[in-house]
Design a protein around this nucleic acid. Sequence first.
DNA 1: TTATATTACTTGTATAGACAAGTGTCAAAT
DNA 2: ATTTGACACTTGTCTATACAAGTAATATAA
Lengths: 243, 243
Amino acid sequence: MTAKYLQIAADLTNKIKHGQYKAGELLPSEPVLSELYGVSRETTRKALAELMSAGLIQKLRGKGSVVLDRARFAFPVSNIETFDELNKQEQMHATTEILQFNDTKMPSSITNQLDITEPAATFVERLRSINHEPIVIDQDYILKKYVPHLTIEQAQKSLYSYFERDLGLEIDYATKTITVEPADKKVIQSLQLEDTNLVVVVRSLTYLKDTSFFQYTVSLHRPDKFKFVDFARRKAQHGRIIL
Amino acid sequence: MTAKYLQIAADLTNKIKHGQYKAGELLPSEPVLSELYGVSRETTRKALAELMSAGLIQKLRGKGSVVLDRARFAFPVSNIETFDELNKQEQMHATTEILQFNDTKMPSSITNQLDITEPAATFVERLRSINHEPIVIDQDYILKKYVPHLTIEQAQKSLYSYFERDLGLEIDYATKTITVEPADKKVIQSLQLEDTNLVVVVRSLTYLKDTSFFQYTVSLHRPDKFKFVDFARRKAQHGRIIL
DNA sequence: TTATATTACTTGTATAGACAAGTGTCAAAT
DNA sequence: ATTTGACACTTGTCTATACAAGTAATATAA
């Protein structure tokens, strides 16, 4: 049973998504929503806090909660985090080619910093293409401790749905860095780079709900196909540019 | 008077920062903290929720709140959002050269999407360098409606401190996109690009607390000096890569 | 007409209490 | 020795209530 406030948040999100509450309009006030859903005001406020942190509404003291216009930008790609989900939702001919698949250890650049007791890992390198254009190379190091029996078939599909649905792993948070770096010849060839030797490198350290580190990913993006979108509130700081 | 839960959050943040609570350790439990600060449990929980969303702790049901190791990465640059603050905190010889400063209108690419009634704006283009190395060009369009009398002296210093401290503007949220694009000759020269003609482009739309749009910024980064760090929880989605 | 209060809304903060649910320990039963 | 159960902890959810503070419209007084 999921919590009431999450159900309410999901319901409100849907209603915004489908235009029942339009950008620029005010949502019903907290007491009204509370009456509507049959919950206390605090529960309603928790639901609204979810929409707030997702950038869907802005709460204005003394006035109400406005629906933000960001919906226009955010929704078409919302909740798409993996290549596989993208493939299903959009009408695109997306393919995944496995370049490498073997046992290895977590790179020392990671184990140096995180004191990992069992560095045994599976390495998967995949080339992702859309409409026969290579877009990105994903290099994944997945700790054997949490995913002992990864097969090449699962890597062909979606790793995340295997982790979460089949294995029940609860992926919770990640730290990411984005840089631009020169690529080696193999990468240049795989991504069919022509005018440049630079690629966008996204490095992700992914953690489970219980704070255990379990996956390191290096994504090499073709610079002309890369776009990163961020919504950031001033105080609770997320993305940050370091000079 | 700032809220109790924010004071508690700030206090806990400091204590984590100064090693009073170390990475991997558990914070005192919610009832204990509540007793310590003399507040109710719900107030304590609000404070912990702040640390949670900042990525400082992870709450574990049935166990407690662990201090995350991310502190190591996040703190040296924490709260540094502007070039001016960076200059003060770090021991770096940072300079700002104003390339352009004039009246203009908000670009049509923006006014097309946001229906702005008064597009009159101030344009500021600045070249930022560290240790005599050019790092980034910032192009700011600031609506006259909110900042009528911007001077070249303020642009030389920090725009944000002028907006927030002097004018009392409450900056609240922003949408950002990061892409990699070819630069024109002027930019190539200013940034002293050699091996490439690509720059990292960060476009920001900045909004006030009352949801009014007031600033558009285009930052052109030298690719070899660019680094973006993000902490993202799985559900409340922030940074997102779009293919 | 203009300024000032009143009033009725809105969200923000804080409290006290209750129960659910997950974790770990230790004792008792098997 | 192993499993089971009770217990004492932890955080998660939800309620009901109260007051503070910001907004906007209206009525009142100057």
